[in-house]
């Protein structure tokens, strides 16, 4: 885990870093950050506990514990990554460990939107391509330079196109992935909407 952590801010146009491969389908957020670490009122200390139980089981052989992966920042995963609990603690823990982007076959929905909301782009690639990248990483080190504008990943040996939801890509390019400011801009429309909704008038009789 890196000692200094600075959260991303503003436009995210480019991410470069070393890839780390984590093989497995349906890796859930309980595994990414076990529930006992959710007993906290901020996210600061989560980085060191990411995948705690899986890492303990593998006694130093977990990808996150290998010396070679110490400075990795692009996570390569398989299908349905981040399923289960909505805990944002999961991507927060990954981010605090050092992950800046994730490339996978597919992502669970709430995990995906949590990643976008905290500035971690998640890209998808077909199953076969993910597996090829993972076996490449198994043998050689892979560093990527990801260009969000063109959804392109470049490495020393090869380049490839990445897929990302258009709405997410635009948000990273404009810096609007941190949605609060954008949502606040429509304050008047929100007020109007609240008056239009039939049930708001019923009120709650506490």
């Amino acid at each position: 885990m890196k000692s200094e952590f600075t959260p991303p801010i503003g436009k995210i146009l480019q991410i470069s870093g070393k890839c780390i491969s984590l093989i497995g389908n349906d890796i859930d957020t309980d595994r990414i950050i076990p529930a006992r670490f959710l007993k906290c009122v901020n996210f600061d200390a989560l980085g060191k506990s990411v995948f705690e139980d899986d890492r303990k089981t593998l006694k130093g052989r977990h990808p996150l514990d290998l010396e070679d992966n110490k400075n990795a920042s692009i996570l390569i995963v398989n299908s349905n990554f981040g399923c289960g609990s909505s805990r944002e603690h999961a991507p927060q823990a990954l981010m605090r460990w050092g992950i800046k982007a994730i490339i996978g076959e597919s992502f669970a929905e709430i995990f995906y939107s949590n990643c976008i909301a905290i500035g971690i782009p998640c890209f998808t690639l077909p199953k076969k391509l993910i597996q090829d990248i993972q076996s490449y990483i198994d043998k050689k080190s892979l560093s990527l330079e990801i260009d969000l504008k063109n959804s392109l990943a470049k490495s020393k040996d090869f380049n490839f196109c990445l897929e990302i939801k258009e709405s997410s890509r635009k948000m990273f390019l404009s810096g609007e992935w941190d949605a609060t400011a954008t949502l606040l801009e429509n304050s008047k429309l929100v007020e109007r909407k609240s008056k239009e909704l039939p049930y708001i008038k019923f009120g709650y009789d506490f």
């Binding site: 909505s86 805990r87 944002e88 939107s113 609060t180 929100v190």
Partner: peptide, 11 residues
């Protein structure tokens, strides 16, 4: 997630 909880509280 928590960032969206923030958004709902704020907006």
């Amino acid at each position: 997630g928590t960032s969206q909880v923030r958004d709902v509280l704020a907006t």
